[in-house]
Design a binder for these strands. Structure first.
Length: 433
RNA sequence: GGGGAGAUACCAGAGUGGCCAAAUGGGACGGACUGUAAAUCCGUUGCGCGAGCUUCGGAGGUUCGAAUCCUCCUCUCCCCA
């Protein structure tokens, strides 16, 4: 492998130009250039799907592997039972065991989509820290692990300091030790030398390297990625609808594609570096093109394409583009009527669907009744009425401005569907049967 | 244990007997502009087509009339021990 290794990209260089390097422990770069390194990142099983926020870490592992190293994803079966206080101002509720197991399994399946698990020495691995914690008794833990780290050291951490006023349970306080031991365990038993993570994990990671040093006089390394910031200062990875998830059941491929497509220009430059595997040259060329014609949003399109394909599939990407064109393109009212039922359903796959009865429609439904009572697209009749009067309501891509208007069978597309729209971006497919 | 302050709509925060469905700011939603962007501007933001109805921590009371006054309860914050 030694000779082959020389051809690999330098991981640190790669992270640097992509803007993915926040802190790095001295000596890390030397370690990485010396051969294949095992590095890991931990994932917190707080939900049964990873979100786009976690994607930064997933991409770190992917770059790591592509740079010739061996990535390990750790799912936090044990740490998830404790709760990471980092960045949290309040004590967390504990997850019950059943939820935890479910979340772990789901996250594991998602991680498996990104990394190569069958490429010899550099094959990715997934480990669960519950495996080494389940038989570790409390007494053993405080003797073998707790003894090496002082309270003074632990208290100095940011995550602890920030909670000195509001309070923190012993459970959360001990979190850093539990995570620190993960690193020690992987270092000791699997030869893992590097831990990566978001910058908020620096404190926890360093507890690990410290434990390795004090307990075994060993050496381990660390680096972190910066917190992703959006140009407008709001939190990355959220939309009006909440978190953007990788699980298509939570965030449809269409919505997922739209999330990236809607990135601000300023943000898309950062995102394309972080979330795609495009080379520096490719990225810079795209940026030049984008500057020439910003309205084409080339950066956003390329970004959305690559990420959607990686997370979902080529097919999902194509459907998302098609749906986007129909929903946002020109001459759409007619195009909509001409869609086959199959295409129609494919295009609107990720759009919320509502059912109403055919009989009622045949009798004619007033537009306000339709939007408020029948479909609950608006939570009250008054709101529906105001929105219609304000010009924010469309049916089958045509604006409705009259509250007296009725809908009947002649408004159906393919004799079965009505495309209801609230504002520019919120679509509802009403199925009538 | 003693003393003080407070609880108002999604949030922050005015209002201290009628002019209050409740200022203002933020957020959210919609419109115009545009590039499905940013910035800006406009509108909406308890329910009802409307008369009107139900809201200001909870329960009672005073009054023609209460978010506003009184009583009790619950909770939060601060200071002293």
């Amino acid at each position: 492998m030694g000779a082959k290794f020389g051809n690999m990209k330098n991981f640190i260089e790669e992270l640097r130009w992509r803007g993915m390097l926040q802190d790095i422990m001295p000596g890390t770069e030397e370690l990485l250039s010396s051969g294949v390194v095992k590095g890991y990142i931990g994932f917190d099983p707080t939900a049964d799907s990873l979100g786009v926020g976690n994607l930064v870490q997933v991409m770190s592992l992917l770059h790591f592997q592509q740079c010739g190293h061996k990535p390990i994803a750790l799912v936090g079966g044990a740490t998830g039972m404790v709760g990471d206080p980092s960045g949290k101002s309040l004590e967390r509720n504990l997850l019950n065991e059943e939820t935890l197991q479910h979340n772990l399994a789901c996250q594991k399946a998602q991680l498996e989509k990104f990394l190569d698990f069958n490429c010899g020495e550099r094959s990715a691995e997934i480990v669960n820290n519950y495996d080494w914690f389940k038989n570790f008794s409390f007494l053993e833990f405080i003797r073998d692990v707790g003894k090496h780290i002082t309270i003074n050291y632990m208290l100095a951490k940011d995550s602890v300091q920030k909670r000195m006023d509001s309070g923190m349970s012993f459970t959360e306080f001990s979190y850093q030790l539990v995570q620190g031991y993960d690193f020690y365990y992987l270092w000791k038993h699997q030869g893992v030398r590097l831990q990566m993570g978001g910058s908020d994990q620096w404190g926890n990671i360093v507890t690990g390297t410290e434990l390795i040093r004090r307990k075994d006089a060993g050496e381990a390394f660390a680096l972190t990625t910066p917190l992703i910031k959006k140009a407008d200062g709001t939190k990355f990875g959220k939309t009006e609808g909440g978190n953007v998830w990788l699980d298509p059941k939570r965030t449809s491929p269409y919505q997922f594609y739209q999330f990236w497509l809607n990135a601000a220009d300023e943000d898309s430059k950062n995102y394309i570096r972080i979330f795609t595997l495009k080379t520096k040259e490719e990225v810079e060329a795209l940026e030049t093109e984008h500057l020439k014609a910003p309205h084409l949003r080339l950066l956003q399109k390329e970004l959305a394409k690559e990420v959607t394909i990686r997370v979902h599939s080529e097919k999902d990407y194509l459907s998302a583009v098609e749906a986007s064109e129909i929903l946002f393109g020109k001459g759409t009212a007619e195009a909509l009527m001409n869609l086959s039922e199959t295409d129609l359903l494919a295009v609107f796959e990720g759009v919320p669907q509502v059912e109403i009865s055919k009989n009622e429609l045949d009798a004619g439904i007033n537009i306000v009744d339709f939007f408020a009572d029948k479909t609950n697209i608006f939570s009250s009749r008054g709101e529906a009425r105001k929105m219609i009067l304000g010009g924010g309501v469309l049916v089958n891509k045509e604006k409705i401005d009259n509250v007296e208007r009725s809908l009947n069978a002649s408004d159906l597309i393919r004799e079965k569907y009505i495309l209801a729209q609230k504002g520019k971006k919120n679509y509802f497919l009403v199925i009538c049967e």
